[in-house]
Each structure stands twice: as structure tokens, then as C-alpha cells.
């Protein structure tokens, strides 16, 4: 029987600190995925992941179970992402201009089962998508990432960002529109 997040937190707070490791294992994939798609770089995503769990651990006593633990964790991670994005300020222009963003973080799943040209096409598509996603404002990107990759509901996203559901929807709409424009632009530039 799996312990709930709240049970693990309780144990951690009562001195069984090793229990926190369970929360890390449970949530590191979603947090890493979120950070990677927000920032576009593996190292940054790892750093944010680490920062997030450290911050969560240090502030665990401040976490009151009125929200879901995962929502709280996502919020910490997004804050860390935004801090980084602000620091590298014109980072998005860079990511668009830098040719040697070598795409090594793009996964080539099961290359043997498809031809090299198919793989190349797929890789190219993913690369364009990544660039387009990095190009739209972080405010829109975070909503798209949470909806598309983290599979969260509108209500969950609203809780994480502490905004109304209607705002989540309108940001998704605007984000998708901008993403579409970026994608078309990048494709035409090839």
C-alpha cells in the first residue's frame, strides 16, 4: 500500500527524514519535465529540480495541507523557472538564434525501427517545436506545458498559478495561437 503525499510529509516532519526521499522519487519526473519544457535546457532543468525539492524540504513545515502537495511543488518549480528566465533575460532570443543548440536532449526513441530520414524528420519537427515553445511568453508557455505534458486539469493549473480557471483557458487559447504562429514562421524559414 502506497503512502499518500500527506502521510509521507507527516513522517518526514516527525523526524523520519528519509521518508522525504519517497516524495522526491514520486515527483522528480513531473518536476523535471516541467522545468525542461519551461527552460529548454537539461542542465537548467536538473538544477531547478534540485532547487525545488530542497526548497520544499526546507519549507515543509510551512506547507499546510489546504492545497495539494504537488500543486505546491509545481508552484515552487515554476517560481524557480521564472527566476532563471528573468536572469537570462533575453534567453529566448538566444535560443532562437543559436544554431548549436545541439538538441541532445531530444530523445531518439527506438531509432532502429524507423529509417534514418524518418528519424531526421521527427527530430526536426521536435526541434522546431522546442524553439517555438521557447519563443512564446513564459506566462503562456507554463500553462501549455502543464496542460500538454503534465496532464493537469484547468482547475489544477488554476490552483497552482492561483488564478481563475477562466484565465487559464484564455492563456491556453492565446498561447496556442502564438505557438501556431511561431511554428508556421519557423517552418517557412527552413
Amino acid at each position: 500500500m502506497d503512502l499518500s503525499d500527506d502521510q509521507i510529509i507527516e513522517r518526514t516532519l516527525s523526524g523520519e527524514t528519509e521518508a522525504f526521499g519517497l516524495l522526491v522519487r514520486r515527483w522528480e519526473n513531473p518536476i523535471y519535465g516541467l522545468s525542461l519544457r519551461m527552460l529548454g535546457r537539461d542542465e537548467d532543468a536538473r538544477d531547478v529540480c534540485q532547487e525545488t525539492f530542497l526548497a520544499a524540504y526546507r519549507n515543509l513545515r510551512k506547507f499546510r495541507g489546504d492545497a495539494k502537495f504537488s500543486s505546491w511543488l509545481y508552484r515552487i518549480a515554476l517560481n524557480a523557472c521564472h527566476t532563471r528566465l528573468r536572469r537570462q533575460d533575453n534567453g529566448f532570443a538566444q535560443s532562437l538564434d543559436t544554431e548549436d543548440d545541439d538538441g541532445r536532449r531530444v530523445e531518439f526513441a527506438d531509432l532502429s525501427s524507423e529509417s534514418a530520414s524518418e528519424a531526421m524528420l521527427r527530430d526536426q519537427r521536435a526541434l522546431i517545436l522546442r524553439r517555438a515553445l521557447q519563443a512564446i511568453p513564459a506566462e503562456m508557455r507554463q500553462v501549455i506545458v502543464m496542460k500538454e505534458y503534465e496532464d493537469l486539469t484547468f482547475a489544477e493549473i488554476a490552483e497552482i498559478l492561483q488564478i481563475p480557471v477562466s484565465t487559464v483557458k484564455s492563456r491556453l487559447y492565446t498561447g496556442l495561437q502564438q505557438l501556431r504562429a511561431r511554428l508556421d514562421h519557423l517552418r517557412s524559414a527552413l
Binding site: 527524514t17 521536435a126 517545436l129 511554428l183
Partner: peptide, 22 residues
């Protein structure tokens, strides 16, 4: 179509997060 494009970016599992919390 945009959503299909979004689906093209799959990531590997997260590298094990090592935090020296103790």
C-alpha cells in the same frame, strides 16, 4: 495540429535528483 507538434517533444525520464538534504 499544434498539439500534435507538442507531442513530438518527448523527454527521457528525469535523471535521479540528488539532494543533500539529510
Amino acid at each position: 495540429r499544434v498539439r500534435e507538434d507538442l507531442g513530438s517533444w518527448q523527454t527521457v525520464a528525469a535523471p535521479r535528483t540528488e539532494i543533500s538534504i539529510a
